[in-house]
Design a binder for these strands. Structure first.
Lengths: 144, 144
DNA sequence: TATTGTTATACTCTATAACTATA
DNA sequence: TATAGTTATAGAGTATAACAATA
């Protein structure tokens, strides 16, 4: 029990460390001026879901609605997302990817993935399986 | 091959998505005013390594030396790290954790881990093993 | 000349607080 | 009253550019 707690604590510290490390590494290698990682994340959500409100996106990305509103305003100004009124609730605003947004996301998104794709190609089949399984686990932790 | 590339690309996208998600989730749950995640990361490095230069830390955390310098200046001002001259190279500056830094890191660090620790406790033994293995793999990707 | 670090400046991401409009 | 969104403001984290000191 003591031992298991200790190893759990180590695992927690390592997961935190490696998450930050991966994030900064990604920022360092992909310094394109075209789309930031946060923008890619938002656009991916919209591409998957079709249309989402500011609040939906904020919840999904674990940020405050005001923060998401600011991010969406930038994307809208750049013509990458479009807003339309909610059909039945006048308070809500629905966002979708614009055609240009879809195209930009496809091109820039892939370019931004390059480094990580190359890195993951160095893993063998077992290792990739482990990593993919772990991704599902982390997602579960986040959704708790 | 096409299939394997497609699944690799999906894995890349998912890893990126879940990394950002975990990061924002952590920021959202641990909004303590005491230490930021970046500060915890730097202090952990110093605790592990003993003494490191600005450039060492910048490399380790994949940020520019100027960025690391700014972060260290804040930590120093708060009495959490101490600087001393390099014994043989007058340009370099060595940083170590202060006694207060070590103590703060222990207390605040553990508090900041709480949410993730609780989340990881919901995983079974197999799942934890998978996650721990994946952490090592991601570290390898980052160090490439 | 190359390296280490500092200073000045700016941008991104996010937060909190106060407000408006709609339900 | 409660919810969705906006506006205003601030702080953390990082980057680039220009500089000084040392190797």
């Amino acid at each position: 029990m003591t031992e298991s707690n200790a190893s759990l604590e180590i695992a927690v510290a390592e997961l935190l460390a490696v998450t930050g490390q991966l994030l900064r590494r990604l920022r360092a290698v992909s310094n394109t001026r075209e789309l930031t990682w946060s923008q890619v994340a938002i656009m991916s959500r919209l591409d998957d879901a079709g249309a989402l409100t500011t609040a939906d996106l904020a919840r999904a990305e674990s940020v405050k609605p005001q923060s998401m509103g600011a991010a969406l305003a930038v994307l809208e100004q750049e013509g990458l997302v479009e807003r339309r009124a909610h059909p039945s609730d006048g308070r809500q605003v629905l966002f979708t990817l614009s055609e240009q947004g879809r195209e930009t996301r496809r091109q820039v998104g892939l370019a931004k993935h390059e480094w990580l794709t190359a890195a993951m190609e160095t893993l063998n089949a077992d290792e990739r399986r482990t990593l993919i399984e772990a991704i599902g686990l982390i997602r579960r932790l986040c959704d708790r």
